[in-house]
């Protein structure tokens, strides 16, 4: 088996600056598909990443979409979102079916998914 080795890590200094020196989110409260919604407009003097998030999330946006638009790693976006949530500037709509890998979503939800897919 091929041993693991580190891959190119991009520019850590930039990430360090964006998050004010933190490298971990305080909690894992933002799933990849948690939908984030702005609760206010950006204000003068706000950090530019916060401004962009508030603009993007005028309509619901998943955490991954925010990360892709801002071209920042998920981890960094989680930290930024944690800040905004703590300040009451966003709300988060968490996924229903994300408790654990092995937990099954209920059949009613799956039926809804099937129906949606068949109507595509």
């Amino acid at each position: 088996m091929t041993p693991r080795r580190p891959v190119d890590t991009g520019d850590p200094d930039r990430l360090y600056t964006v998050t004010g020196g933190r490298s971990r989110a305080d909690d894992d409260s933002f799933d990849l598909v948690t939908l984030v919604v702005s609760e206010c407009e950006p204000t003068a003097g706000m950090q530019s990443e916060h401004v962009r998030i508030l603009e993007l999330c005028r309509h619901p946006s998943a955490v991954v979409e925010i990360a892709a638009e801002l071209k920042l790693p998920i981890t960094v976006v989680r930290i930024l979102l944690g800040d905004l949530l703590a300040m009451g500037r966003i709300t988060a709509r968490h996924p229903r079916a994300a408790d654990s890998v092995a937990s099954m979503p209920d059949s009613a939800l799956l039926k809804e998914v099937l129906h949606g897919l068949r109507n595509l």
Binding site: T9, V33, V64, G116, L117
Partner: peptide, 23 residues
């Protein structure tokens, strides 16, 4: 060790409430 993993994703709105992300 620090590892960067890239992945792509798309989206399907299944109805007005439920949205499916494909990774």
């Amino acid at each position: 060790t620090t590892t960067t993993v890239a992945f792509d994703f798309g989206r399907i709105s299944l109805n007005e409430r439920v949205v499916l992300y494909l990774f």
